[in-house]
Amino acid sequence: MRLLTHNYMQSTVKGTEKGYPLKIEADKVEYEESPFDAEFVKALIPKLNYEILSFALGQIVEKCKQDIEEVQIPELPENIGEDLDEELLKKLHTVLFDLHVVEGHLICPDTGRRFAIKMGIPNMVLHADEM
């Protein structure tokens, strides 16, 4: 699961008011370098919730530092404006696409419901009585 995906996710379990951002408990993270496309990242920024992205990175950064040796885990600025230089776009690319939560849990901030992430796939399927 990429942090881009996390950015759009919310819990829909019964009793949820807002349902996001989901907390992340990362048990295993991986880094996989994908081709950097400045234009695509640039076009993506206005569609993101930057606050949630920073939050998500904060949730997994310690685990990333432990598990990932290939790259230095980028630090994101508190805010981003309109003008994004290449260096920042690359950092955003890494955070959005190249860090993968492979094993762990997503946790609903309202109800505490835990959603398992296995082999990179979050299982958000609810039981009938949770809908």
Binding site: M1, R2, L4, T5, E32, E33, S34, P35, D37, F97, G120, I121, P122, N123, M124, V125
Partner: peptide, 19 residues
């Protein structure tokens, strides 16, 4: 990513979710 040969190759970020 292994299939990407040069920087101009179009790359698709693929993601999966159970819901």
């Amino acid at each position: 990513v292994e299939e990407v040969e040069d920087d101009d190759d179009e790359f698709c970020q693929v993601e999966y979710m159970l819901a």
